[in-house]
């Protein structure tokens, strides 16, 4: 299990390939579920968002995501989890977050990956400030996971 919070741009597919080669025993996992969150140039009905600054709480952010990954590994029978999340300046079309989960069977990997990204979006201390045409704007809420909300209700 590994959690990385970094400013540098990363290639999520290269990260997944390298992490898997270095950390997963060959021939043992049957499924991997990969979530990649990407920066849009629109949000909350506003077009033309030119860039974004992602603030975080150094120390708590990493600690929180590590705990969520540990919770996921205890809850589901998954083999490994790898999370990369960027902070600082981010441009449209760049990846913001990668959540990769490996398991023997697909169901566990789907459930654990969804759990990690949903907790991350609602509990991990990150804050987005968008550069909108009219000026800078702190985003005040994440888009809801409508399917999860529907299942929960």
């Amino acid at each position: 299990m590994k959690v990385v919070v970094q400013e540098a741009l990363f290639d999520p597919w290269e990260e997944v390939r390298n992490y898997q080669q270095q950390n997963l025993p060959r021939g043992k996992h049957g499924g991997s579920v990969i979530f990649v969150g990407t920066m849009r140039d629109f949000n909350e009905g506003v077009d033309g968002i030119s860039r974004m600054y992602l603030d975080h709480y150094p120390g708590m952010t990493e600690k929180h995501i590590e705990r969520v990954c540990e919770d996921a590994m205890n809850e589901w029978d998954i083999m490994d989890a790898y999370v990369v999340h960027r902070v600082g300046e981010i441009n449209p079309d760049e990846p913001i977050v990668l959540v990769a989960v490996w398991s023997r069977h697909r169901a566990m990997a789907f459930d654990a990956c969804r759990f990690i990204i949903n907790d991350l979006k609602h509990r991990a201390p990150f804050w987005k400030r968008e550069q909108r045409p009219e000026g800078e704007h702190w985003v005040e809420g994440n888009t809801a996971d409508e399917r999860a909300a529907r299942i929960a209700s």
């Binding site: 992602l54 709480y57 991990a124 201390p125 990150f126 804050w127 987005k128 005040e140 994440n142």
Partner: peptide, 10 residues
């Protein structure tokens, strides 16, 4: 002690 608004990562 830290005070902050609702989070918006991911």
């Amino acid at each position: 002690v830290a005070f902050f608004p609702p989070v918006t990562g991911g």
